[in-house]
Design a protein around this nucleic acid. Structure first.
Length: 444
DNA sequence: TGAAATGTTGGGGCG
DNA sequence: ACGCCCCAACATTTC
């Protein structure tokens, strides 16, 4: 058996502009791409019609088709990564393994184990930055500590971006950090093989969710006008690329490069993404609780019936209910509305934001641990650079500002305005004052 | 990427 | 013309 290198796909499901894959293909030995449906992760999912699993499965099938055209294939396994790698060590003569960094706590632990397993077998494990522009230790304060406030982080991020410019190949200049990896130039370095059989969704205990996935291509003009349109949920004004950023079906470098040219506000959102990934790396405790410890003392009401009504979109606050119903039906919620429903749950209802975070984690197609945690903690006031606790969104004025004509509300809450629509679950004025008291008590 | 409470100003009605 | 009040509009402070 002749030696090969392996490229391990995780959340980077594309053949173009893929850092780890590029390095693998340039390494000299034929490259066998693999993917593992990780039982450690899949077994934790309650809903067997999980659209994210379906999405990954669909994208793996697409990679398989693309590789077949190149005379190669992707080896897809279903199991616990350590067991799978132990099998792979039997099945192949592996020289080195290539992959891209994954910064989540579980992934760090998993990769540590696999790195050790491979090392014990004399095999190198090479991992690369691919899913962010700047990772954990690239944008730090002058004293070497991580930023916990966004604005100075962003300033430093932009400075670093401009610090190294290169020729873009067509006469202009381009940040070194936006350069793409010309993976396609080396596509003939894939291991020549027949296509492999891919485990079926049903075989892994899953089924299709039956909701459509957002396109990989953004409609003309959306990014260019993002700053003007992004706040209006009834307007088609956001890219909806979340799921593609999450699973790497698009290249962050390509999108950030485009954003830097077309719209600074859109680029800003990508910087937030880097920011929260960096925060999660340095402060992994944000997965299980508030970044600021004193917020753990808030006496949440945690009323189960009210939580259920929030989940189902039956709070009697139209903009909140519209958001929750959009989420339940499509796996997506407009970002402006995410802020409104999060503020409402944690502040009006005084329900632990972690309940809401967990609900989003179950429902959002674009769920990302770092950004979800960061966003919820921002809304609840307990995170890095968070909205102060006394900044309580008024659902009525948010609706007036951002959905004046009620187009969004009417789309998702058809019974709005009829007798079938429920009365508000809480009085706004009372809830606001109650929130201020409870937060003040915990924080004094 | 807040909202409400409180303070200030100035125009207009009116005696 | 003047003082007084009301209140909208805007500014500032507070939560």
């Amino acid at each position: 058996m002749s030696k090969i290198n392996i490229f391990w796909f995780r959340r980077d499901l594309r053949l173009e502009d893929n850092a780890g894959l590029y390095h693998a293909l340039k390494s000299g030995l034929p490259v066998l791409p693999i993917f593992i449906f990780d039982k450690n992760i899949l077994d934790k999912l309650e809903d067997k019609a999980d659209a994210r699993v379906e999405f990954i499965h669909q994208e793996i099938a697409r990679l398989s088709d693309e590789l077949e055209k190149l005379g190669s294939g992707i080896l897809v396994k279903y199991g616990v990564p350590h067991d799978v790698w132990t099998e792979l060590l039997q099945e192949y003569e592996i020289d080195a393994v290539f992959t891209n960094h994954d910064y989540e706590p579980y992934a760090r632990e998993r990769d540590g184990e696999i790195r050790k397993l491979l090392k014990d077998n004399g095999i190198a494990f090479h991992s690369f930055k691919d899913q962010v522009i700047f990772e954990k230790d690239e944008v730090l304060k002058d004293d070497g500590e991580p930023y916990v406030v966004f604005t100075p982080y962003k300033r430093k991020w932009l400075e670093k971006l401009d610090s190294e410019m290169v020729d873009d190949g067509s006469g202009g200049m381009l940040s070194f950090y936006f350069q793409s990896y010309p993976t396609g130039k080396y596509h003939d370095h894939f291991l020549k093989t027949k296509p492999f059989e891919i485990p079926t969704l049903a075989g892994m205990g899953f089924e299709p969710a039956g909701i459509p996935f957002p396109a990989r291509e953004v409609k003309q003009g959306i990014i260019k006008h993002y700053d003007e349109t992004r706040n209006f949920p009834a307007v088609d004004g956001t890219s909806r690329l979340g799921i593609h950023y999450r699973f790497g079906t698009i290249s962050i470098r390509k999108k950030a490069r485009k954003a830097a040219i077309l719209n600074k506000t859109y680029l800003n959102e990508l910087i937030w993404r880097d920011f929260y990934a960096m925060i999660l790396w340095h402060f992994p405790h944000v997965v299980d609780g508030p970044f600021r410890p004193q917020y753990a003392d808030i006496e949440w009401r945690n009323n189960e019936q009210e939580f259920k009504k929030w989940c189902e979109g039956k709070t009697g606050y139209p903009i909140v209910d519209a958001g929750m119903r959009e989420l339940n039906e499509t796996g997506y919620m407009h970002n402006r509305v995410r802020m409104i429903v999060a503020s409402f749950l944690s502040k009006h209802l005084l329900i632990n934001w972690q309940w809401g975070e967990a609900y989003f984690a179950k429902k959002l197609l674009d769920f990302d641990l770092a950004s979800n945690s960061g966003g919820w903690q921002w809304a609840a006031g307990c995170g890095t650079d968070a909205a102060p606790y006394f900044r309580i969104f008024n659902p009525a004025s948010q609706q007036e500002k951002f959905d004046k004509d009620l187009n969004y509300v009417k789309k998702w809450v058809p019974e709005f305005g009829t007798k079938d629509y429920p009365e508000p679950i809480v009085d706004h004025k009372m809830a606001r004052e109650r929130c201020l008291e409870v937060y003040k008590k915990a924080l004094k």
